[in-house]
Each structure stands twice: as structure tokens, then as C-alpha cells.
Amino acid sequence: MKQLRKTEWRRGYPIKKNLALCAWGLMALAGFAGILSHPENIPSLAASVLALAGAVLTLPRLLRYYRTTYHSLPALNRRLTKEEQEELLENENFETITELKTESLRWTDIAESAHWLRINGRYIPKELVILGGAEVTFNIMNRDTTPVIFVYATGDTVKIDLGVQASVQKIRELNAYFRSRYHIFPGQADGKKTEELCSIFREIYTDYLKEKEPEKEDAVLAKLVKDAGELRQKCIEKMPPYLKRGDRKA
């Protein structure tokens, strides 16, 4: 079985897809059945209309979730076919990053291959990541889990839940590892600034694809996964100076 398929089954995505479809079907069926069987019962009719409205409103989201080929390959799963995604990881051999699996992350899946990071069952192309890292979260009940957010040179943003709440010291250690080993610039929690930066990267990536014509996007991405130096440099040149310095307070 191919690597992506194994990860999908370990994370339970095929089962989650079918459960979501069944739940939606039951909600839609309950709505239709209630309207047809008890049209004179006002409370029952209202509940049935609400159930049917809920089914209609959630249908687009359900379809997007169900049609997503590999949830374990975020962002790129929207740009590539199922076969193209499988090919990217076919010959990659992953090894656990043991130095990071300490304290709260000792049970978290953190591994890497020549060109990819795997974090909690999600695959990240190391060459395409420009900035990002783990974010400190605060919750009055101390139940928040730590997210890791990456911004790609394609303009895509990927958020991965570590599934645990990492300490501030562990987050610093994780981000220091990303910076020193993969040359990833520190990210920022400001959503508006991040979106502006993503917009700039998307424009650069679109122009880059035009320069590579008549090559198709799948072929370009396959090369970028191995070496994105040219595209990275174009993106870094357009980044605000404070991000290049790693100044998160600017």
C-alpha cells in the first residue's frame, strides 16, 4: 500500500468521510420525512425544516471534505490529482526526529525524509515552506492544543494540530529546529498580515508557473519539492524586512 494511503487509514480519514456522509444523509432524510409525515404538527414541522436547512447549508462543506483525495497532504491536495500526490511521496523514506520527541511531544508523530516533513500525519514539503512554526495558545481551562502553521511559496497556508499542548520552551525548541535546519522564517499570528503575505506569494507563484510554460503545474511542483531555491528567493525578496529579521513584534 502506498505511503499516503497508509497514513490516511491510520488517521481514519476514509472512515470519517463515510460517517460524515451518513450523518448528512440521516439529517436530510429526517427533514424530508418530518415534512411529509407531519405537515400539520407545527413543532415537528419546524424541526424538520431546520434539519433540512442544515443539510442544505452543510452540503458544500461536506462535498469539499468528501472530494478531498488525501487529507494528509494539505494544500497540494487541491493542486494535484490523486496519482500525482502519490508519486511525490512514493520513494520517500521517513525517519523519526528523535531529538524533538521529548516532553509533551514524545507521542507525537514527527518524522522527515529527504524532501518532506511529517507532523502528526500531515506531509509538508520542506523546500516550499517560507515561514511558520508552532504558535503559543492560551486557554483558561488549559485545554488548547498547539497548532503549527506554515506558509508555502505557493501562497498556501497549512495548519497542523499537534494534538497536545506544548510548553513555551518546547515551542521555542521546535521553531529553532525549523529555522536552523530548514531555513524557515518565524511566522506570525496576525491573520491579516499573513493573508497579505500569502497574496504576494500566490502572485509570485502564478508568474513562476507562466515562466515555466508549457510545463504543467504537477511537473513544476515535483521539481520544486526537490529544489525550490529560485522560487523561494523571489518570495523572500518580497517579504517585509521585519520578517526577514525574525522580528515578530514589528
Rank of each mutant, 00 (worst) to 15 (best):
L52H: 04
P39L: 09
E203A: 05
N77I: 05
V136E: 15
T145A: 03
L80I: 12
E90V: 12
T154Y: 00
V164Y: 02
L36G: 12
Q188V: 06
L80N: 07
E211G: 13
F150T: 04
V225L: 00
R118G: 02
A33S: 07
H183S: 12
N91S: 11
R248N: 05
E90H: 12
C198G: 07
R143C: 09
L36E: 13
L100Q: 02
V49W: 13
K238E: 06
E195Q: 15
L29S: 12
N18C: 14
Q233F: 10
C22S: 14
Y242D: 14
K244E: 07
T98Q: 14
E237V: 10
A250F: 15
W116N: 04
E195I: 13
S48P: 10
H183P: 11
A166P: 02
I35F: 06
R106D: 08
S199Y: 05
L57Q: 00
F94K: 01
G31P: 05
V151S: 12
I15D: 03
K192P: 01
F94Y: 05
L105V: 05
P125C: 04
F201I: 03
I160Q: 02
E195K: 15
C22M: 15
A23K: 06
C22N: 10
F185G: 04
L128H: 01
G132Q: 00
A114I: 02
S104W: 11
K238V: 01
G25T: 14
I35Y: 07
E8W: 01
E230F: 11
V225C: 07
W24R: 03
Q169M: 08
L52M: 02
E203F: 02
T69S: 15
H71F: 14
A30P: 08
T206A: 14
R181N: 10
I184C: 03
N41P: 10
K6S: 04
K234R: 13
T69W: 13
Y152H: 08
T154N: 03
L221E: 06
G155E: 01
N142G: 12
K2I: 14
G191K: 04
Q3V: 09
R64H: 14
E215W: 05
L63P: 07
K234S: 09
E112D: 04
K101L: 11
K238A: 11
I236D: 02
P186F: 05
L209D: 04
D190H: 04
L221H: 10
T206N: 10
